[in-house]
Computed example of a mutant assay.
Amino acid sequence: MKFDVSSAALLSRLQAISKVIASKNSLPILDSFLFDLQENKLVITASDAETRLVTSVEVMNVEGAGLFAISSKILLEPLKELPDQPLTFDINDENLEIFIHFQNGKYNFIGQKGDTYPQQKPLNENAITLNLDAQMLLSGISRSLFATADDELRPVMNGVYFDIHTDDLTFVASDGHKLVRLRNLSVQSPERASFILPKKPANLLKGLLSKDSEQVKIQFDENNAYVYCANFEMVCRLIEGRYPNYNSVIPQENPFKVMIDRLSFYNALKRVSVFSNPASSLVKLELRENEMLVSAQDIDFSTSAEEHIPCQFDGTELSIGFKATYLIEILNNISSNEVVLELADPSRAGLIIPSENEENEDVLMLLMPMMLND
């Protein structure tokens, strides 16, 4: 087999899919990229047995066709240092000895047989298809991923839950302390369905989708999902199990409502939280008429801080404690200028909602409070 390819085009494709390769693999062949030469197209696959990324690159002056695998380290490290230029791959079909010729030199190594690379199971007949806008999918994953758990006992919490209704798609993520529910009303589906996308493929999609502004097609059954983007195809195993009823934990009656500038609140929390106890990261919010007092202290080191922030609030005074790191993460994933805090009492979950949602969106974030010592 023989072909020419642009080093920059090849490197950009390899780097994008290499993130799926695990540092330790159960099968040695998974340390490699699988190449499939088909006429003027080189199809490249990377996988970690659970998730698989496929892309392709245009090639020229092709002779022959076939499958071969090359160690990801052997290929990626030298290519990163090469300026953009044509590369000529010359592969011996008998012993898979590979020469890569470039402007001022060549590389020589032995490839591996591609037919031992694990194949992907096809979806079953009752698979469901969903067409989404790439930016909408990216936005939903990006703003919910931070709330997923790392819980070995409850694996269903370790991914983003896609709850698909006939007139909307809801992204949900929760770790038991914080919860994100992001409903998008622009998605229509012919039927009710749902799946849980694990954290690793969600993170990979986040990296791939940022370059895509087109439509994304998702096909899934109860075990696997295929995601088709403009230049990539991802196949991943889904998390099996029932996702908890997330709507039942969202408090409905919240008499205390506070409207506050998101950036002022965010910056004050970042400053004040430096003085909190590092183990708990507890900050105390005291609500008074049109003012919020944000305070933190670390008794062990005799440090404390407090800041006053103006806000819109005319209820009775209330004090509630939250973990600062979680609250900062939540505010960082809301885009509106002002946020509304909806609270009931110091022991019940607080809701953080943007004062203005983006078009076709309904965002709600929930945070469990922490006990105050006083």
Rank of each mutant, 00 (worst) to 15 (best):
F195L: 11
S248H: 12
Y228L: 07
I141H: 00
D151I: 03
F232Q: 08
R154M: 12
S139W: 12
N245E: 12
P244L: 10
A202G: 13
L209T: 09
N203T: 10
E222S: 12
T166F: 04
E214C: 12
G159D: 05
Q188A: 11
T166K: 09
V187C: 02
S174I: 01
K178Q: 13
L208A: 03
P201H: 01
Y226E: 08
P251Q: 00
S213A: 03
Y246M: 02
L182K: 04
L145M: 06
V249N: 07
N131V: 08
A149K: 13
N203L: 08
A225H: 06
L138P: 02
I196H: 00
D163Y: 13
C229T: 15
Y226K: 10
A134S: 10
D151R: 10
A225R: 00
V216C: 02
V216K: 01
Q219V: 12
I128T: 11
I164H: 02
L132M: 11
T129I: 08
K200C: 01
F146P: 01
L208D: 00
L197T: 02
P201S: 09
Y243V: 06
E222I: 06
E222M: 13
E240I: 07
L132C: 04
S213L: 06
D150H: 12
Y243F: 15
D221R: 06
A147W: 01
L197K: 00
N224A: 09
V172M: 03
D167Y: 03
D167F: 06
I250F: 09
D167P: 04
C229K: 09
N203I: 11
Y246C: 08
L138R: 06
L182D: 10
P190N: 12
N231K: 14
V249W: 11
Q219S: 15
D168Q: 14
S248L: 13
